[in-house]
Design a protein around this nucleic acid. Sequence first.
DNA 1: TTACGTAATGCAAGCGCTTACATTGCGAGT
DNA 2: ACTCGCAATGTAAGCGCTTGCATTACGTAA
Lengths: 334, 334
Amino acid sequence: MPTPTLEDVARHAGVSTATVSRAINTPDRVQEQTRLRVEAAIKTLSYTPNFGGQALASRRTNTVGAVIPTMDNAIFGQALQVLEESLAREGVTLLVATSQYNREREEAQVRALVGRGVDGLILIGAERPPAIYDMLDQRELPYVILWVSSGEGRHVTIGFDNDAAARMVVQRVYDAGHRKIAMIVGVNAGNDRAMKRAEGARKMCAELGLPALRIVESSYTLEAGEYAAQQILSNGERPTAIICGNDVLAAGAIFAARKLGLDVPRDLSIVGFDDIDLARVTLPPLTTVRVPHRRMGRTAARHILDWIRSDQRPDSVVYDAEWVERQSLAPPAM
Amino acid sequence: MPTPTLEDVARHAGVSTATVSRAINTPDRVQEQTRLRVEAAIKTLSYTPNFGGQALASRRTNTVGAVIPTMDNAIFGQALQVLEESLAREGVTLLVATSQYNREREEAQVRALVGRGVDGLILIGAERPPAIYDMLDQRELPYVILWVSSGEGRHVTIGFDNDAAARMVVQRVYDAGHRKIAMIVGVNAGNDRAMKRAEGARKMCAELGLPALRIVESSYTLEAGEYAAQQILSNGERPTAIICGNDVLAAGAIFAARKLGLDVPRDLSIVGFDDIDLARVTLPPLTTVRVPHRRMGRTAARHILDWIRSDQRPDSVVYDAEWVERQSLAPPAM
DNA sequence: TTACGTAATGCAAGCGCTTACATTGCGAGT
DNA sequence: ACTCGCAATGTAAGCGCTTGCATTACGTAA
């Protein structure tokens, strides 16, 4: 038996396709009795509307797309989860695509989502080829950018200031007494959040009169963080504190320290970034920076819906990244 | 300027829409020169094919859908990530929807994905209303079920035996010398994995001649796990070991123990399930069961594609859940 | 009774695309 | 020179749905 169509339902219920369509979409515009007949037919045929046809005819999809770097990191998962729930509550479906931190892939995914007719788009980070923004603007497609704070006026952003957050971290580490500091950050290419964090830390070090900050780039796994930390601790002058671009890297760094017989934080301080669940359970618990991912998710949902429905571009919002003191940062041993 | 259509491109390139379509989909069926003209037109107009139109006309979508409980747990994220990568390599897009462990929501999501014309479907767990399976069968829509090992012959499953895994855990805990055991599991309703784990553990306890296993249901957060453990440890006879339905709950249990001044594993053993990153970084590192989530993701991709392309239903596969010994399980203090 | 307004429904166009079939153009074979 | 075959392209139907407009049915007012 082939997939039933509106027409099958109509025939079954003894009405026209128009009536079936109305029974589904605007039930109060058909008679109670008719509606019931239609519903019965739908049930017996186990009919499901064909989205393509619907989208084509109505020119709306009630769908919002999101392109994130990866689902393999809790931080995006949690933001998305909230986003999805908030959208679902308004009858809007979320389409998720991942870019794997790869520029071309991201562009392709954005195009794919646009082709799928999403009514709005959620993106992470502002740095991407202008051609993409041009395309979105040309179609007047609402989009909001998460995780960064400045859209240079051109974009609606919902996030926090990565640069300032990184500076704060350096300041705190400095205040704790550290002068020999190193940093591990995620791969910078196509990741403006990681870049800003590195930049902010670097500049802050300079302003504080510290020697040039040693920064190691690393991919995003625990193992990679462990390896990067091991490099830092084994070669050259050993720092008394390592600042990490995210919590997973920090957990890896803790491992590396432990393997080298270093006590954290007595022999080495380690600071994370994100405050995911994992940060609370490490030994010692991670001192880190809390990223407002759930709030970003929720606000993103509200803003994109507002924009879609009212056709009025909403304002950007900047949240604070909050310092979370736990036990992986302490004054350096003398 | 409205969204450009195939026709706009055709006009721009001075050819028919058919030729443009061919230039895009079967480039070798048009002349080099024509193809270049078309490509140029596409670029200038920044044309993106309309998915609805495409799907409607070609009756294929090159899309696979997945419905998972939540993105808020690393374990699903990782499986999905691998799934997505494997599918993308074959030019297939993954559509992800979440059910939030809710039956009705899951059914709605499956229908939505079917309506979107997915060529195949990935589901987690086998327990759902038969009507859904009937619908899928009626449309001859390929689907594979992850995370469980028995589709009762009706389904293609790719997973492991939750029941057996739970029995193994009990056996190991028993072998370590524990006789007073409690268990924390995720909410059972609509979650056959959690249920099987609870069941398996319960029966194994019985077989070993242990008193009835005390089982506490909990939602899926660290805090909930902490709370559940606290209940177990404060009321009634205190167990010497707590088996947890997943690692997040186990991490919460460790917290609860610590708050009560109990040393893990000296005063209390705790065992997790899943082996996510978090399991390695807790204090002490979690003894747990490794779930082959990446392998499930990869195999799911291969199987569903095979099924779609060859129209032949693939075989189920059962992986082993592997015991991972770390430091949260030890013999009970005498 | 007749006319009229309104609610319920039907009719049919068309959304953007693919594809079976028709047409065209051109070189090769006779 | 003419036919044939094939490659390149065009023509047009139709995928499943929504929706503006037309039609019908029916209750109410005059």
